[in-house]
């Protein structure tokens, strides 16, 4: 279990938590492990009881409300470029297929527990890599008819025992830099997704429990939904946006919406920072909505027990509150 504590500390160091918090979390874990040992728990059982330190830190981080920093961005929204969330190619990624797409290309991906990464490159081809996929027969992969389809045939869950990073499997797709995808549709169960610099007319993403990160996305209409996976969007431009979550948290920075954005949450928290929309519509049951320097022209807020807090520093930008209703949550606009 010494390794657990070391890994935990490493993960904590990567997070934005303060020194004080890190040492408190470390102390708590030392205590818990010590007591577990006193009670005669075997090492195997201990490992099962404690699981993956990454997840603890991710959860703590997710619960951690970032305190707002002073920004001089007063609503002149120049799209900031975010660092790509997609990792570099690794030796285990093996090239599966190269082909040249035509205009109005479509992409559809359906996966169960395999990760997916999408990024651009400077060539005119689409490259598909796969990483440690054991049996490609399990997938339907098709490039014909102006459409790339990657779909897992059986929807049986693969149960991955333990958290060894080595067991992670996935696909990695490179798109030509200038290619506009007509229709990009993703449906995944417990797959993590990383997308950078996608341009499309339509983007549809649905995840059950996997986490998704997206950077520098430009699309005309987007529909993104998650059940319990967390979403993080940095730099996302679209005309209409439908964003929904059951219990996963959503954090978005630089969300530029031409027309309308609907946000729907049951218990996941929503955190929007820097952005604008013509029309913003938030519905929450118990999740909190935190809007920081997000400037809609019109807003409609509805909450059962979650709090919705909008804080904007630019007083010149008038926000028209069209509708506001809460049962027991607070709605604060400042």
């Amino acid at each position: 279990m010494k390794k657990y504590l070391e890994d935990l500390e490493k993960e904590l160091r990567k997070s934005k938590l303060s020194e004080e918090e890190i040492s408190e979390i470390m102390e708590d874990h030392k205590e818990m492990i010590e007591i577990a040992k006193q009670e005669g728990i075997s090492d195997d059982e201990l490992e099962k009881k404690f699981g993956n330190p990454k997840k603890v830190v991710a959860d703590i981080n997710g619960d951690y409300q970032e305190t707002s920093t002073n920004r001089d961005n007063k609503g002149g929204f120049e799209m900031k470029k975010f660092d790509s969330c997609v990792r570099d190619l690794q030796p285990e990624d093996s090239l599966y297929k190269t082909f040249t797409p035509s205009d109005d290309y479509e992409i559809e991906v359906n996966l169960v527990s395999d990760d997916l990464q999408v990024d651009f490159h400077d060539e005119d081809t689409i490259l598909v890599y796969q990483n440690r996929i054991k049996d490609l027969e399990e997938y339907e992969i098709d490039f014909s008819n102006n459409k790339l389809l990657i779909s897992r045939k059986s929807h049986k869950m693969k149960f991955v025992i333990g958290f060894s990073k080595k067991s992670q499997t996935g696909f990695y797709i490179f798109l030509p830099k200038k290619l506009n995808i007509k229709d990009f549709s993703l449906k995944t169960v417990s797959s993590d997704g990383y997308f950078n610099a996608i341009q499309s007319d339509k983007l549809k993403v649905s995840t059950t429990s996997g986490d998704y990160r997206m950077t520098n996305i430009v699309t005309k209409s987007a529909k993104v939904s998650t059940v319990s996976g967390n979403l993080r969007l940095d730099g996302f431009e679209t005309t209409n946006f439908d964003l929904s979550t059951v219990s996963g948290d959503i954090a978005a920075e630089q969300l530029i919406i031409g027309e309308k954005i609907h946000v729907n949450t049951v218990s996941g928290d929503i955190n929007l920072k820097d952005g604008k929309a013509h029309n913003l519509d938030i519905k929450t049951v118990s999740g909190d909505g935190l809007l920081n320097e997000f400037y809609p022209d019109m807003v409609s807020l509805k909450s059962v027990s979650g709090d919705i807090i909008m804080s904007n520093s630019n007083r010149d930008h008038y926000v028209d509150v069209v509708y506001k209703k809460t049962v027991s949550g607070d709605i604060i606009i400042k």
Binding site: D28, M32, K49, F50, G51, N52, K55
Partner: peptide, 19 residues
């Protein structure tokens, strides 16, 4: 104390410390 809570709950539900 923390470990006791984890231990009590994990007797009935399949959850661990990191949750």
């Amino acid at each position: 104390y923390g470990y006791k809570i984890i231990s009590n709950i994990s007797q009935h539900l399949d959850v661990n410390e990191n949750t």
